[in-house]
Structure formats: C-alpha cells, structure tokens
C-alpha cells in the first residue's frame, strides 16, 4: 500500500516552502524533520506539555495537534524565525538573566507562549502570567524564574512605551 501524500505550500519564517507530506504528519514533525527547524521540540504528542508551541497565522498553536496539511496556505513562525527577527530579544535576555531555564527543552515553546501574553495583555498580573503559561510544562525551574522573566519583560516594555 502506498501511503497518501499531499503537496502543500506554506510560508515558514517568511520563506515560501513547497513540500510533499503524508497527511498524518504533524506540523511539528514537518518543521523539525522536513525543514530541519529543530528549535521547536516534541514532548507529549497529545497537546498537554506545550513544548511544540509554534505560531500559525500569528496565533500560538500546538504543533502536535495540527497536521502539516492543515497549515497549507498559512504563515508559520518558529523560534528560529522570531529569534532572527529580534522580536523576542528582550524576553530571551530576561530568561537568561533570571535563570528561567535549565535544560531548555520547554524554552522555545515557553517563549512563544509568553510572547502572546506580552502582545495581548501588557498589564498582565503574575496570576495571569501563571494562567497563560499553564499549558507549557517546565520540569526544571519550578516556574518561579519563568514568571519573573516574563514579568520583568512586561514591566520593561510598559516603561518603554511610556518613555516613547
């Protein structure tokens, strides 16, 4: 039996990409194995841990709960793309300074998840930060330092806006 295949065209980190994929392939596996974008990680593969968080058309999604074929025509951004653009440089720097990672496995997903909060809820409280990242598991830090880093960035961005 030959497995079904489909041809998809999508934008990944600003570049147009055309590939043949099996319909059953997860978006995250397509990004990692098809495009060598291994910054995003695979954890639980059923939508619980958040390690595979990527952006599709500007919104964060679980890369293991979306098929590559579903992303046809979409614009996908991974940690490689947002790192290159510098969009999250301040957040990434805060993660360094606050020691908000140890093994780093959850970090790419955590950063993209936090980025959505920075964007949508600039006045988020610590409780809101915790709630927002509740779908991204970290097994090293105990979260305190991650919440600190996100809060630091929120505060700095607010101050930056006031200064403008």
């Amino acid at each position: 039996m030959t497995l079904p295949e489909a041809e998809i065209t999508l934008t990944v980190n600003g570049r147009s990409v055309r590939r043949r994929v099996e319909p059953r392939q997860h978006l995250i596996d397509f990004l990692r194995e098809g495009l060598d974008l291994t910054g995003s990680h695979v954890g639980c593969e059923h939508g619980v841990c958040g390690a595979c968080t990527v952006r599709v058309d500007g919104r964060i999604v679980r890369g293991c709960l979306m098929l590559a074929v579903q992303a046809a025509g979409c614009s996908v951004e991974t940690i490689e793309g947002v790192s290159e653009s510098g969009e999250l440089a301040d957040l990434q720097s805060a993660f360094h300074q606050r020691n908000a990672l140890q093994c780093g496995y959850c970090t790419p997903g955590m950063l993209l998840c936090a980025a959505e909060l920075l964007e949508t809820t600039p006045n988020a409280t610590r409780a809101q930060i915790r709630e927002h990242i509740s779908g991204n598991y970290c097994r090293c830090t105990g979260y305190q330092a991650i919440v600190d880093a996100i809060e630091t960035t929120l505060t700095a961005r607010r101050a930056g806006r006031t200064a403008d």
Partner: peptide, 12 residues
Amino acid sequence: APHIAHAAIRNS
C-alpha cells in the same frame, strides 16, 4: 471560556 484547556488550544 478561560476554563477550557490553555491559550494555544483555545486558539484552535
């Protein structure tokens, strides 16, 4: 709505 799973899942 906020009780449903997490932000990334509520987006989809």
